[in-house]
Design a protein around this nucleic acid. Structure first.
Length: 426
RNA sequence: GGAGGCGUCGCCUAGUCUGGUCUAUGGCGCCCGCCUGCUAAGCGGGUUUGGGGCUACAACCCCAUCGAGGGUUCAAAUCCCUCCGCCUCCGCCA
């Protein structure tokens, strides 16, 4: 949720942001008119309520006939107060309804437009020339099958399409990535949390995942709980409703969790292998910082992602995601995309978002205002440090003609192997 | 799953039976000031959060806030209902 005071003071800024996102800018006026109505109604209610309270005191002191007279007088007021209160709260929910539909105000410099309007900021490494090396690259599933590392058939047997088993070196490779990511996060000052992956509707909505992506989310009807698509949800909820002390610096957390996604809108897309699946593992970074420190923290997260990807020794690029592709809570988002040889294109491996105060405002995460009295919303940021999908980039980019795969140096201590070799079927 | 108890402004706590004198008591902690060789003690004051009015986003005034949401009433921390969380005991269980 954006700051209503900012919307009142600078409505044009919000309109411009909505325009950049390709979203409805008339919501701004909807909020403004409902807000005006709310404030008028609230004043009316408060005035009469004060009157009613004062009257109540006289009633308490009176007795006998006097009391009866006063009671008759104030009865009407009571009904009127209730009416005014209802009007005020109706206007407030109308205002909040519109306000909640407005995405975070995009940071200056973010490219306008949709999915394809991203700007490439950096490119690292060069794709291998398999033709020059004299062999046709196998895709990650073919390699995973040869290595006995990925078993889609049994995944489908047990759970349906888009489920899989990682077997032997496959499972070890994934786990190695997670361990390495957690260790690096720890060294960078992130406290590790083991988090819930089932959360309440309030938490899910607070983190911003029930708006545009509601149909992407698994819901447990019987218990009214949601399965999280990222540990970001639980990490964002961790300090919900709390007043934090950030005077000693940011609060940084990291978590490994299983992530669940319905992939409802992507039938027929990425159906091979583990590129797009219903369940995967992910190590996430999350930080609560002062709003002034958010851009620096964002850069820091991106740097940690860069270092992880460098260690994977795969070609990748970094993009500045366009406004329309940010999602509601983010004000800026950088994706790191690795080169996937058999697809001839880059695929997202990490994503780091600066949500400024948007998420925190919904979740009620605040700090003592260092500038004045009272409290103010903190900023939240998140970023990926490893996911199951990284296996795709590792297998394809490090494959050899005989179907074996070289493990990048940095990962070897965690995998316990230098080379993954084809095995007989299990 | 069953039975019972509890949830008050950072922490502890009074108030709930018997609705109005609650503008929520007291202690601890914390902040400001006084006093004082220093420190401690002592003394005085302040200390939930959100919103609105007015404004310098100050002071001040008002409304809401006693786990959450409804209800009864002229009036609710207090009475009623629903939900959530914690604790104790029993049962069941990978």
């Amino acid at each position: 949720m954006i700051d209503i005071r900012m919307l009142r003071d600078e409505p044009d800024r919000v309109r411009a942001s909505q325009r950049a996102r390709g979203e409805d800018e008339t919501l701004v006026d909807l909020v403004l008119t409902a807000d005006a109505r709310h404030r008028t109604a609230l004043s009316d209610f408060e005035r009469l309520r004060a009157e009613q309270k004062a009257f109540g005191k006289r009633v308490a002191k009176a007795s006998g006939e006097d009391k009866q007279v006063l009671l008759d007088q104030v009865k009407e007021t009571a009904a009127h107060v209730k009416e005014l209160e209802r009007m005020a709260s109706d206007a407030a929910s109308e205002r909040d309804g519109a306000l909640r539909r407005i995405g975070n105000v995009v940071i200056d410099g973010v490219p306008a437009g949709g999915e394809d309007d991203y700007v490439v900021l950096e490119e690292h490494g060069a794709p291998r020339d398999f033709a020059a090396e004299g062999f046709e690259p196998r895709d990650h599933l073919e390699l995973g099958t040869l290595l006995g590392a990925i078993d889609m058939g049994r995944g489908a047997k047990v759970s349906g399409s888009r489920f899989y088993y990682l077997v032997g070196v496959g499972a070890r490779l994934e786990f190695a990535l997670m361990r390495m990511a957690l260790e690096r996060a720890y060294e960078a000052g992130f406290q590790q949390l083991a988090v819930p992956t089932l959360v309440t509707p309030e938490t899910m909505a607070g983190a911003g995942f029930l708006d545009a992506h509601a149909d992407e989310v698994y819901r447990l009807e019987a218990d009214d709980l949601y399965l999280t698509g990222t540990s970001e949800v639980a990490l964002a909820g961790f300090h919900a409703g709390e007043i934090l002390d950030l005077s000693e610096g940011p609060k940084r957390y990291t978590a490994l969790s299983t992530c669940y996604r319905r992939e409802a809108g992507s039938h027929g897309k990425d159906t091979r292998g583990v590129i797009r699946v219903h369940q995967f593992q992910k190590v996430e970074m999350f930080a609560y910082v002062r709003v002034e420190d958010a851009p620096a923290e964002h850069a820091r997260m991106l740097q940690l992602e860069r270092e992880m990807l460098d260690a994977m020794e795969v070609p990748y690029r970094i993009i500045d995601t366009a406004a329309g592709d940010l999602g509601g809570p983010a004000a800026r988002k950088y994706d790191c995309e690795a080169w996937v040889p058999t697809q001839g294109r880059h695929r997202e491996l990490t994503s780091t978002s600066n949500c400024t105060t948007f998420q925190a405002r919904r979740l009620g995460t605040r700090e003592r205002d260092p500038l004045g009295s009272g409290t103010r919303a903190v900023a939240t940021l998140n970023g990926t440090l490893a996911t199951t999908r990284w296996v795709v980039a590792l297998l394809e980019n490090h494959q050899q003609a005989d179907g074996s795969v070289l493990v990048p140096q940095a990962l070897r201590p965690y995998v316990g192997e230098d080379v993954l070799r084809p095995v007989a079927a299990v």
